[in-house]
Design a protein around this nucleic acid. Structure first.
Lengths: 163, 163
DNA sequence: CCAAAGTGCTTGCAATTGCAAACGCGCTGG
DNA sequence: CCAGCGCGTTTGCAATTGCAAGCACTTTGG
């Protein structure tokens, strides 16, 4: 997994560099990295660390965030799950309970996503979550038992202001 | 250069993990990294790559950006220099000229900064306010909120101990 | 013509990342 | 008491990062 998929970030850097009309060596100097390494990065032969990426962003006078997104390191935007944020901000739950709920919720989401992908394998171009396919551990279900018994409320009602 | 300022990121991760009441191994599994490696990261013995950082952020259900900032990988953000943006948007300059101007301007800034740091050695840990190419929607900020809030008050990080 | 300087690229190599295996420690329970 | 499980940590090791040195090519220009 060292060569192919990282291409976009390298291309992006090269585009930005050429657009700024500076040579590879100049950018390398400005970014504080070696020229051969930058060359390899631009051609997708190497996967630069976040530090290097940050330096390059500075050398290019572009947003580091944009570069991270391009590199797939920030993905795009965190999944804006109201459920998770609601769980996390619920003062009536212990840390353990929070975690259990979140894990369960996520496993459900995961299942659903797997089903959807089976039925229709259309384009999800930036989707990059390789191995997260473990079923719900018994521990969690066991932890859930007393909880579900005492709490009959099944809806995760969001109280966030919705405009 | 193996352990300069990476300590904070490790401590931060550990705090977040303990706050979520999950074990090191659980987080390691959720993040898709090995437990020994996560252990070393938390203790500041290793400097994780951006990918690993991203995975950990997901495992912790916190914003990857926040983690990058903590790791010093996003540092803060490029100073929203009007000069640079003005230079970049000036149609009367060639790409090369633009670059030269920017470089000169930056070297001046750098000099100045060096002087300032000599006179007063305090760093401004300014919170990250997203305002770049794409302003983040409030939904996202809301998702960030519990985390950002805990950074300011909830965590046992910055209690009444000042050295 | 050929030195000098520019461009990007290839090649070893030290240092680092990241992991599998295994250790010591505490707890539970047959 | 010892087997079993989970916790965090330590210890080698393969794979990768990132760099210094050097290559091939093109342009400048005395």
């Amino acid at each position: 997994m060292a060569l192919p998929k990282v291409g976009s970030i390298g291309e992006y850097i090269r585009e930005q560099r050429q657009q700024a009309k500076i040579s590879l060596r100049q950018l390398a100097a400005a970014a504080g990295v070696s020229n051969p390494y930058l060359s390899q990065i631009e051609r997708g032969l190497r996967k630069p660390s976040a530090e290097i990426l940050n330096q390059i962003a500075k050398g290019l006078h572009i947003s580091a965030q944009a570069l991270y997104v391009q590199a797939g390191l920030i993905e795009d935007r965190e999944p804006p799950s109201d459920v998770i944020s609601a769980i996390r901000s619920d003062k009536h739950l212990s840390g353990r309970q929070r975690q259990v709920l979140i894990d369960i919720y996520e496993s459900f989401r995961k299942e659903k996503r797997a089903e959807d992908e089976q039925t229709s394998q259309n384009a999800h171009p930036r989707h990059d979550s390789p191995q997260d396919d473990e079923p719900l551990p018994e521990d969690y279900l066991a932890a859930l038992e007393p909880f579900a018994a005492s709490n009959g409320n099944g809806t995760a009602n969001q109280e966030t202001k919705e405009g």
